[in-house]
């Protein structure tokens, strides 16, 4: 029997988290490479709908791991459920997106099973019989290839943007869906979570944005943010910033991209006056196309840019807004 790869997808607020598709893409690639069987699981209460949605992708089986006690999310319940499931479903590799929720329970799950998790990976390599998982170290300055030295199951989490969610392959026909009811005893759940809320009314989910125009120190003054805003509006995108801009209060914290802000993987990331400190880059390097405008030709942002303009953003942006408006009007 071939080994099994299990992708645990994430749902939140009645929607599959988009990064789940990225993890499925990673799972499909690993399955193709190893010849192992790909399965998926969704954990929660009343999650059959999600399971059916996933079953349309190219995989062998989908499990809906169900208990009323899995809603709302608690690490105690999720660990109990997955531990139970994995005890009866031998699995070689368990893949999950490196979300805040996964970070909250995976180390506990792995420890409870006497296993390890290699977290926040950006890819994998197969060398002979060995599977290596690549992850960033030292804030992205170095990369490491890491192997498991423990028995299965091996837990791996993938960074947002490491794989393309839109590349996930559809199946020839829907995969079978099996509901697995798990029993979570009274007293297992110790945390009592309250309703999820947004701090600021205007809080924006930049992870879902297709186009992002971001500003950095090169914008110089708060009033100059207006031209970046105009460009974002012309493109139909969201405005974002590097940490110093938000620390100065020029834009709210929820528009911050980077290690202490949001991690995004939009279709287009247009960086204006951003030098590209690693703390920023880890939050946006997954963008499909990166355009950088910076007057310093040595700025590290150019290392990862697809298109680069060495020049003054105050010269480039106004005519660019006009060109974009023209193109949109003509479209």
């Amino acid at each position: 029997m071939p080994e099994t790869i299990l992708v645990v997808v994430e749902q939140r607020e009645g929607k599959l988290n988009r990064v789940s598709w990225e993890t499925l893409t990673a799972g499909q690639a690993l399955a193709a490479e190893t010849g192992w069987t790909l399965e998926a699981a969704v954990v929660g209460s009343g999650v059959a709908g999600f399971a059916n949605e996933i079953a349309l992708k190219k995989l062998a089986k989908v499990y809906a791991i169900e208990s009323a006690k899995l809603e709302p999310y608690t690490p105690d319940a999720f660990v109990a459920a997955l531990k139970q499931f994995l005890a009866s479903h031998p699995t070689k590799l368990v893949l999950m997106p490196h979300t805040y929720q996964v970070r909250d329970f995976v180390p506990k799950l792995a420890t409870a099973m006497g296993r390890a998790a290699i977290s926040d990976c950006i890819g994998y390599k197969r060398e002979g019989e060995k599977l290596l998982f690549t992850r960033q170290m030292f804030q992205g300055k170095l990369a490491a290839d890491v192997s498991f030295t423990s028995d299965a199951p091996w837990f791996v989490t993938f960074q947002n943007g490491a794989y393309r969610g839109d590349k996930v392959e559809a199946g020839a026909s829907a995969a079978p869906v099996e509901t697995v009811s798990v029993v979570i005893a009274d007293g297992v759940i110790r945390n009592k979570p309250h309703e999820v809320f947004k701090e600021a009314k205007q809080a924006v989910d930049l992870t879902q944005a297709e186009i992002i125009v971001a500003v950095g120190r090169g914008i110089k003054e708060q009033k100059n943010i207006e031209i970046a805003k105009q460009l974002a509006e012309a493109l139909g995108g969201e405005l974002a910033a590097s940490r110093p801009i938000c620390d100065s209060g020029w834009l709210p914290m929820d528009r911050q991209i980077g290690s202490s802000g949001q991690t995004v993987a939009p279709k287009l990331y247009l960086a204006l006056g951003i030098s590209g400190a690693i703390q920023h880059i880890v939050g946006m390097k997954g963008a499909r196309t990166i355009i950088a405008v910076n007057k310093d030709s040595e700025a590290p942002i150019f290392e990862i840019a697809d298109y680069a303009v060495v020049g003054n953003l105050f010269d480039i942006v106004p005519p660019l807004i006009e060109e974009v408006k023209k193109a949109k009007a003509g479209a």
Partner: peptide, 28 residues
């Protein structure tokens, strides 16, 4: 339970295309 097999400087994977010229032209 896990081992760093190797540590290295990540390779630059992108081919960056520099757009040059006067501002108006670059915008176009």
């Amino acid at each position: 339970l896990q081992k760093i097999e190797r540590l290295y400087v990540p390779q630059k994977t992108k081919n960056t295309e520099f757009l040059e010229g006067p501002a108006g032209e670059v915008a176009k």
